[in-house]
Nucleic acid binder design. Structure first.
Length: 425
RNA sequence: GUGGGUGUAGCUCAACUUGGUGGAGCAUGGGACUGUGGCUCCCAGGGUUGCGGGUUCGAGUCCCGUCACCCACCCCA
């Protein structure tokens, strides 16, 4: 038995990083007024064929799709923007036309797996609807940048504008014309017809295309004005960015501003990307609404995240011997069930405060195998990073005290059972 | 989807030029210390060598197929 190609069980260190990224995102984007949404993992196929363009690779070969029992075509979502737009049209466009939302979840694309590329992968995305200004563009890039900083990921942003409905068709025509004068690789010959912009992305032909016409020379007044404004604001926000004239996007719905973030040491695969898509809402059946968003790949992100090597010690572990287990479990339950001891000021004696904190705010666990020796229980408590061990043996029960070992300081002391019981009641 | 590389214990890797009874470190469990962690020492458990076929007296090793992972292309977050 093995898991499906390109999927993985996430656990241990990788899971810690996942959770860290997700929690940081939730806190940060919420604090900026974004609302979280969770859309279904399965959608009707048309949600994506309509939005991504039916010639895109994702739609043509990469979607997991199947016929549902009622005959409808259903897919596992390959990306998050189209469902977000569907959600916006259905739930927000009238009640809250200017909306900021974010999502976190798995996406599916049937590609050949590789580093940073999996068939089930996870994205965090932010989308803003109803804002059409350069201010909103640069704001979005700024929060992407500051989020990466929060994670400790050193990044560089590439920005460009692929023009609007007015100027892009003019440019595409010129670009296609230009490519006929070049000897291009077979892939590019194919792309030239379908999606000439992507020829600029080609790695093989990159040098040949150095003198290709640049979109920036074809921008209309509005596009130029807007792009300059974005660059100015980005400088004001001190975002590290570069105008990359050859930057384009793979998905059809983008218009105007586009951007990608890379880790500073790895310019090969983008960790975050996005752009403006002013006509998608309308195209999917909503009111004309300007929109802009980005998504990042969690798997790609966590390659660059360093978690603190070892968490500080914390918590209480109860160790006992075979003949004291009843008492030990009674103690465990009493401790587990007594909350807010400190707020109730039940803990009078100063010397107990730290211990009580450890098991009310931190971990409290008890040995589950009565046949184990104390040594083995100590080893477990140590390797799992507990701070205190409560030792319950015959000596303690008959002497009416608890031995407490501080694993950090390697000290051991006794506390009176009578004292301890008074505030557990 | 195309091309290349790699699959040996839970993990990282040995097993040589030329086929001859698969080992170590780490991790886990136990002991030395019969009620005390980390350090040290000792012992133990764990493997159809990814899977299937072929060549051979004999295959972890050579050949073919297949699957998985990694790398590049492609695509994209």
């Amino acid at each position: 038995m093995q898991n499906i190609t390109g999927t993985s069980d996430i656990f241990g260190e990788a899971l810690e990083k996942f959770v860290f990224v997700e929690n940081t995102a939730r806190d940060y984007f919420s604090s900026l007024g974004f609302e979280e949404i969770r859309t279904p993992i399965i959608e009707y196929q048309e949600v994506f064929t309509k939005s991504l363009g039916d010639v895109s690779d994702i739609v043509m070969h990469q979607m997991y799709s199947f016929e549902d029992k009622d005959g409808s075509q259903v897919v596992l979502r390959p990306e998050g923007t189209a469902p977000a737009v569907r959600f916006y049209i259905k739930n927000l466009q009238y009640s809250k036309p200017r909306s900021k939302i974010f999502y976190i979840g798995p996406m599916f694309r049937r590609e050949k797996p590789q580093k940073g590329r999996y068939r089930q992968f996870h994205q965090i995305g932010c989308e803003i609807f109803g804002f059409g200004s350069g201010e909103s563009d640069s704001y979005l890039i700024y929060i992407a940048d500051s989020f990466l900083k929060k994670l400790g990921v050193e990044s560089i942003a590439l920005v460009n504008s692929i023009g609007c409905r007015v100027c892009r068709p003019r440019y595409i025509e010129q670009l296609r014309e230009y490519t006929y004068s070049k000897d291009l690789c077979p892939d590019c010959v194919r792309r030239r017809e379908k999606n000439p912009l992507r020829v600029l992305d080609c790695k093989i032909d990159a040098e040949k295309l150095n003198d290709a016409p640049a979109i920036s020379d074809y921008w209309c007044e509005d596009c130029k004005y807007n792009f300059d404004k974005v660059c100015k604001y980005l400088s004001d926000f001190s975002v590290k960015f570069r105008h990359e004239t050859k930057l384009v996007r793979g998905l059809d719905y983008y218009t105007g501003l586009v951007f990608e973030f890379y880790h500073k040491d790895d310019m090969k695969s983008a960790i975050l990307a996005g752009g403006r898509y002013d006509f998608l809402v309308e195209f999917m059946g909503g009111k004309p609404t300007p929109a802009c968003g980005f998504a990042m790949g969690i798997e790609r992100l966590i390659n660059f995240i360093q978690m603190p090597s070892r968490a500080p010690r914390g918590g209480v572990f109860i160790a006992y011997t075979e003949d004291t287990r009843e008492f030990a479990f009674w103690l465990f339950r009493s401790m587990k069930e007594s909350k807010d001891l400190l707020r109730q000021k039940k803990v009078i004696d100063e010397k107990y405060v730290r211990i009580v904190e450890e098991f009310t705010k931190g971990r409290l666990e008890i040995n589950l195998d009565p046949s184990r020796g104390l040594k083995s229980q100590f080893r477990q408590a140590d390797s799992e990073g507990y701070k205190f061990i409560f030792i319950i043996g015959m000596e303690e029960v008959s002497g009416k005290f608890i031995s407490v070992r501080d694993l950090e300081k390697s000290e051991q002391f006794q506390i009176s059972l009578q004292d301890f019981r008074t505030f557990l009641q």
